[in-house]
């Protein structure tokens, strides 16, 4: 079964001065699947993500969303389309509670005052729909949460807004084993709910646990797109380190 991609990136480039960080990248996200983006430090993963988030617009190339060509010049453009990035350093306010964080910047009002009850019930429904069970109270300050719970809140925040594409930057980097498992479960559920999910990770074990497709970036070039069931971690490592290139003959698709 193939569905057409919700997000398609064609031949995007980005340079910082004389350094070409992205040299004509192709990338696509299919709804209902989890796509992993891997590559060594400096391969261009973050730059690609920042371009999709509208934080650092691409120099050239084309981005289509639901088949329509779009411009991503500022964070609001991405947010309006329904592309949400969950950052590695989380971007939650410690001094606010879970509900307040989930609705930050998009508070629901009842006239002038905020509608706390409405926000609380919607936050609760969203967490429930993601089968989150570890949180004790929605009115807990985020500072009292564990790393995994914080990641959960950050992801739930992305879901709450009916986003169509959720991009997770190293969601398990700072987590213990059990918490990593919880977050990966959550990532899988996002896919099952029909969202296009992109996960950036250095941890190939995590990638192989959740991803349907694996893209490998090497020095600003998209080397290969692999289907998880057609590959294995050691092959991916070879692509990441440049020990294997697509021309050497692979069982993945040519990008």
């Amino acid at each position: 079964m193939t569905t057409s991609p919700i997000l398609e990136v064609r031949q995007v480039t980005k340079s910082f001065g004389a350094v070409d960080v992205l040299k004509g990248i192709d990338f696509e996200v299919i709804p209902g699947t989890v796509t992993a983006l891997v590559g060594d430090n400096g391969a261009g993963k973050s730059t690609l993500i920042k371009g999709l988030a509208g934080i650092q617009p691409f120099d050239s190339g084309e981005v289509t969303f639901e088949g329509v060509k779009v411009n991503l010049n500022e964070p609001r453009d991405a947010a309006d389309l329904g592309i949400e990035v969950v950052y590695q350093d989380l971007a939650l306010c410690d001094n606010l509670d879970i509900v307040q964080n989930m609705f930050l910047g998009r508070e629901v009002k009842r006239g002038i005052p905020l509608d706390e009850a409405d926000m609380e019930s919607r936050a609760g429904e969203t967490l429930k729909s993601l089968s989150v069970r570890t949180v004790k109270s929605l009115r807990q300050k985020v500072s009292s949460l564990s790393g995994g719970q914080r990641q959960t809140v950050a992801i739930a925040r992305a879901v709450l807004w009916n986003n169509k594409v959720v991009i997770l930057d190293e969601p398990t980097a700072a987590l213990g084993v059990a918490q990593t498992e919880q977050v990966l479960n959550l990532v899988r559920r996002l896919g099952e709910q029909g969202l296009g999910v992109v996960i950036i990770s250095h941890n190939l074990q995590d990638v192989f646990e959740v991803a349907d497709y694996i893209y490998v970036l090497y020095l600003g070039t998209m080397v290969v797109r692999l289907k998880r069931e057609d590959t294995n971690p050691s092959e991916v490592v070879e692509y990441i380190t440049g020990g294997k290139t697509n021309n050497a003959g692979s069982n993945g698709d040519l990008v």
Partner: peptide, 10 residues
């Protein structure tokens, strides 16, 4: 509480 979080929240 967190300027960066506030900025990213729009």
């Amino acid at each position: 509480g967190n300027v960066e979080a506030a900025r990213r929240a729009g």
